[in-house]
Simulated assay, not measured.
Amino acid sequence: MKNFRRNILLIAFIAFLSANATSQNKESSVTESDVKVEKKSKKKKKKKKKVKLPNIDLSHWKVTLPVANEEGKPVEISPPEILDFASIEVAKPYMYIDSTKGAIVFHAMPTDSKTRNTKYTRSELREQMVPGENNVNWTFAQGGKLKAKLAMDETTRDSNGKYHRTIVLQIHGRLTNEQRDLIGADDNNAPPILKIYWDKGKIRVKTKVLKNPNATDMALLHEEAWDNDKGFNFEQEVGFRKFTLEVKVSEGKMVVILNGSEFKVYENIHMRRWGVFENYFKAGNYFQSRDEGAYSKVKFYELEVSH
């Protein structure tokens, strides 16, 4: 009888130890699972913090900012200083990197810092074929190609509730020093042959036409010889989404392409006569409003130019 009781107690004790061990194993298993989940969560957080950089080489661009220098003129930053724009204090509010999106943001609003012959301000790049030099540019005969991926990030509305518009790309004309002296101009400025607007969520293109197609080569050097065309709107609405723009220029011809699927071709007497000018590309945010409190922010993800 004593042996029977002893065996029963021994079996009960062994069963207790076995149950306790199983319970501990279960607790250990749950803990390991929790650790795995936590590690995965940390990995996801690390991925979210991954830094993205824009695919833009600024070694052949200078920027004009909507803030004045000591002389009252817009601040400009040229190569090589522009390569370190993210650490330049005066540039930080108007040109900065969004490392979560991999873009350069160009921020513009009305200020007293305006370039000559305009009432609007800009945070905008200007192409320099020779870094730091404005006197080396290109003609239509030499040709040029630009491709950009960009998006309107933010923009305000006017008193009618319509979004303010901005110019995101340009081809600007330029007089050579000889042409400037020939017509007695006090600077090298010539009209822009191309302006591409973000306009209420759509892309609008404006170019120039001669008032008199038979004007002499000397007469067409004057800005007054040119007028604005009626403009062209692409059918696609880009809104605040990413989109691509391509501009291809050759002798007597200019082509603008939206998202690789819509084309606007300019091939006429005006393009042929424009060949007398030198040119340079511009890209960024040339804000088209003087409304109080108005602003826009344009993001550029990619920008490539070739000649």
Rank of each mutant, 00 (worst) to 15 (best):
I183T: 05
R5S: 08
I171N: 03
D186A: 06
G201P: 01
V130S: 13
K248G: 09
Q128G: 13
S29M: 12
H270N: 15
E70C: 09
F281S: 03
A185M: 08
V168P: 00
M109Q: 02
E302R: 09
K297P: 01
H107V: 00
N177E: 13
K92S: 03
N7T: 12
E278G: 03
V30K: 08
N279L: 11
F16Y: 13
K202Q: 12
K46I: 07
I97H: 07
V90Q: 15
H60L: 05
K50R: 13
E224C: 05
F4E: 15
Q142R: 08
G275D: 12
G260Y: 07
G293Q: 06
Q142D: 15
S250I: 02
I14R: 15
K299D: 10
A103S: 14
W61S: 05
S113D: 01
K50I: 14
E89P: 08
V35E: 13
V276H: 06
H222E: 11
F287K: 00
K26I: 05
H107F: 02
I167H: 00
K147M: 07
D153V: 02
Y286M: 01
K49T: 11
N189V: 09
D227A: 12
K145S: 14
Y295N: 02
V51R: 07
A225F: 08
Y280C: 03
A86V: 05
E133I: 11
F277T: 07
Y295V: 00
N55Y: 11
M109G: 00
M129H: 08
P80W: 11
G239K: 08
Y266F: 10
M95N: 05
K282G: 07
H307F: 14
R157T: 14
A15Q: 12
L146N: 01
R6H: 11
R273L: 07
Y94C: 00
F106W: 02
I14C: 13
K48V: 04
V90S: 14
K299A: 09
K62M: 09
R165M: 09
E70K: 15
I88V: 09
S29N: 09
D112G: 09
D199S: 09
L83H: 06
N69W: 01
I11T: 13
